[in-house]
Amino acid sequence: MSDKLKVNTMSDYFAEGKTPEVLFWVGCAGSFDDRAKKITKAFVKILNSINVDFAVLGQEESCSGDPAKRAGNEFLFQMQAISNIEVLNSYDVKTIVTTCPHCFNTIRNEYPSLGGNYKVYHHTQFLKKLLNDGRLKIKGGSYKGKRITYHDPCYLGRANNEYEAPRELIAKLEAELIEMKRCKSNGLCCGAGGAQMFKDAEKGNKEVNIERTEDVKETNTEVVATGCPFCNTMLTDGAKTIEEERKISVMDISELIAKAQDL
């Protein structure tokens, strides 16, 4: 228990009659998936290191509804969305940050017409904002001069037109960003979106994550950065399947920053 991070819940804050600067929406992957939990921790470490006043919903958080909606179950999606909005509004939440582009997209674009209006940030956007505000300092550290490639999550890139925030953060690490042949608006999906994460792929001649991992391999980099727990899983699996001598490590941008700062 010694490495337990300082994390307050909204109800802790509420009990003290306070409101945090931002709500950190952890998401299902960030809460339960072993790999994604590390991303959650890395992001929290960064926030704590510069004393950002944040809280999580904890047991009051529930699935944003994205996979249900993309699978065609609008009922279930709206049940989730409306219940979540009720919780968020009861705490008078104004600003949300999340490490999951799917939660980010859904809360940002699909909650408003159901009564949930918030300023929603993807964690790379939020970190960029902290950087611009002079609150966060990023130094190159262990990634200085290293070759890093970046995989655009579809739900951050094409879906919400955010290609630059993650790249600016990588630049701050003083790493050399090597773009894949398919990047930014031409980026190839990892294969997880649209509820594919939860089912086997249809018959074909290849898995999408292998196709994408081969793009990574072509860049001859050791690190592929991304900003989505699902892309992370898919690329990690892809790297394992390709079984290269040269190990590809799949890292969330928040992990890169936390590691570079020795957090």
């Binding site: 337990k4 994390v7 952890v26 809460s31 529930s62 049940m79």
Partner: peptide, 23 residues
């Protein structure tokens, strides 16, 4: 996946009460 979301608020069969266990 959908019945998991319906029953425990996550696409996987984890309990909503364990949402903070990552820490």
């Amino acid at each position: 996946m959908m019945s998991n979301i319906e029953n425990n608020g996550a696409p996987w069969p984890y309990n909503q009460m364990d949402r903070l266990n990552w820490n």
